[in-house]
Design a protein around this nucleic acid. Structure first.
Lengths: 141, 141
DNA sequence: TTTAACTGGATAAATTATGTCCTATTTGTC
DNA sequence: GACAAATAGGACATAATTTATCCAGTTAAA
């Protein structure tokens, strides 16, 4: 019932990348140090983000990671669907999940609504919002 | 990111208890057979529900479990808070959780909203609703 | 050519969730 | 009072998942 640490690492990575001008390359090592995340493990997380098309990685010297899409196009909901292997409050709500009476199960219906409400909320703020100067954010209100 | 199997067991137990007239005692064994849940494990789950005041257990011959409150006063949200040890999308949202910058963290704020949205949705249907004959439910609309 | 980075597979360690066993304790019934 | 039926609760065992590390590749810049 909690997001995994890996999801948290992914969020922090995207936060770091959203703070710098779009297109800027950061090294995994830098991110791991800034955010206090084990470097080798972070590598794997970044690979997930890369396969999902959220970031682009570049090998070789001077390589690293950069955002593949503008921070105002990414939300925490996107991260969840990438890093949380089986998103879904219950098995019957995951892609591969199956339950003989999933069509009539009232519990499933309630859980589904709850999950959708959660994701809808997560979609309201983009990473651009998350890294925005809180003072400036206030001005918008 | 999923409810545990124990939570599912707890929900199923309450479903069974909500189907019978309020006050009816059922045995753990019966519930475990009807819902296909390992009996000894279910015992533990029921103990959690009992400590939380949702059900009352009675020892001895003719003993068993019965609802401690009317099914229209219990929701899946109640079950979650009982069986999901650390409810909270992230550590910083659990009771014991702490993070040095939890006051200013924008991620925490978004996760908190999402979690509240989820719980709010779960609170909309009571167990009385869940076991209601779907036909009769329609009539109410 | 060397060095700095990511890739990817295998594996290990840690944590959590699930399930079982055994010995109490309580309560109804004969 | 003896017995049987039921939960209580601690200790333990197993399984699954998550987190972390290792190592041998591959890519690209200088």
């Amino acid at each position: 019932m909690q997001i995994t640490r890996q999801t948290e690492y992914a969020i922090r990575t995207l936060i770091e990348l959203s703070k710098v001008p779009l297109g800027t390359i950061l090294q995994t090592r830098d991110i791991s140090q800034k955010q206090d995340v084990p470097e080798v493990f972070l590598t794997k997380t970044i690979q997930l983000l890369a396969r999902a098309g959220l970031v682009t990685t570049q090998r070789g010297s001077q390589g690293g990671v950069r955002l593949a899409v503008s921070p105002d196009k990414i939300t925490i909901a996107d991260v969840l669907t990438v890093t949380e292997g089986r998103l879904g409050l219950n098995v019957c709500l995951t892609e591969s999940g199956y339950c003989p009476n999933m069509n009539i199960c009232p519990v499933r219906r309630v859980l589904k609504r709850a999950q959708e409400a959660m994701l809808a909320e997560l979609k309201k703020d983009t990473f651009a919002d998350l890294v925005a100067d809180p003072e400036k954010e206030k001005e918008k209100e």
